[in-house]
C-alpha cells in the first residue's frame, strides 16, 4: 500500500510542469540550510540592497492602457520572431532575430516622442539593445540566450508601455524557469508556446495579462 501511494506521489510530481526537478528541490533545501549558517557573514547588507530595486522594479510608466501605435512594429516583429525561435529550440534563428531587433532600434523614430517619453525610451532601450545584441552573438548557446531573453522580455513590456503597440499582446508567465523564480514573455497568440523551456515543456505556463492597445 505504501509503495502504491509513493508511486502515485512520484507520478503526480512528474506529470506537473516541473518534471525532473525533484533532485533540484533537495538541492535547494540544503542550500537554504547553508545560507542560514552563513547569515552573520552577510551582516549589514540590507542597508545597501535597495538602491537598484526601488528604481527599476515593475513597469516604468504604465499610466493607463497601452497606446495604439505602429512605431515599434519592427521591434516587436524582431522580438516575436526571437520568441518563436527560442520556443522551437532554434538558437541560430534567435540570434538572427536579435540582429533584426538591433536594426529596428537603430531606425526607430525617437524624435516623435516627447522628452519625458524619450527619457523612458532611452533607459529601456539602452538595456534592451544590449540583450538583443548579446543574443545575436551567442548563436549555439541557447540557454545563455534564454537568460538574456528573460530580461529583454521585461524591457519589452516596459517599452510598449511608452511607445505603444500595433497589436494585441498577451503577457505569459512560466513559473518553472530559472529554478522556479519564473519568467514572463510576450506573445500574440493565446496558445502557450514556452520560449524558456523549449520543446521539452512547450505548453508550460499561463497567460497573465491581455494587453489591448487603444
Amino acid at each position: 500500500m505504501k509503495r502504491i501511494l509513493l508511486t502515485l506521489a512520484v507520478a503526480g510530481v512528474l506529470s506537473s510542469c516541473g518534471n525532473n526537478d525533484t533532485s533540484k528541490q533537495a538541492a535547494d533545501q540544503t542550500e537554504t540550510a547553508h545560507n542560514a549558517t552563513e547569515h552573520e557573514e552577510h551582516g549589514d547588507h540590507d542597508g545597501h540592497g535597495d538602491h537598484v530595486a526601488s528604481s527599476v522594479s515593475g513597469n516604468t510608466s504604465v499610466n493607463g492602457p497601452v497606446r495604439k501605435s505602429d512605431q515599434a512594429s519592427a521591434i516587436l516583429d524582431g522580438y516575436l520572431a526571437m520568441k518563436d525561435a527560442l520556443a522551437s529550440d532554434n538558437s541560430a534563428k534567435a540570434a538572427a532575430s536579435g540582429e533584426m531587433m538591433v536594426k529596428a532600434f537603430a531606425s526607430f523614430d525617437r524624435a516623435s516622442l516627447d522628452p519625458k517619453q524619450q527619457a523612458s525610451y532611452d533607459d529601456t532601450v539602452d538595456d534592451a539593445r544590449e540583450h538583443a545584441e548579446h543574443i545575436g552573438t551567442n548563436s549555439g548557446k541557447i540557454d545563455h540566450q534564454r537568460e538574456h531573453f528573460d530580461v529583454l522580455s521585461k524591457d519589452m513590456t516596459d517599452l510598449i508601455a511608452v511607445v505603444g503597440s500595433d497589436r494585441t499582446l498577451y503577457q505569459d508567465y512560466c513559473p518553472m524557469y530559472n529554478n522556479k523564480k519564473g519568467a514572463n514573455w510576450l506573445s500574440t497568440s493565446k496558445e502557450i508556446k514556452n520560449p524558456y523551456m523549449g520543446s521539452k515543456m512547450s505548453t508550460c505556463g499561463s497567460m497573465k495579462t491581455e494587453i489591448v492597445p487603444q
Binding site: V52, A53, V56, T124, D126, E130, E147, D155
Partner: peptide
Amino acid sequence: YSPRRQRSKLKAMSS
C-alpha cells in the same frame, strides 16, 4: 550604468 542596466548586469553576473 543606469539602474536598469545595473540590475541587468547583476543578473548576468549571477547567471
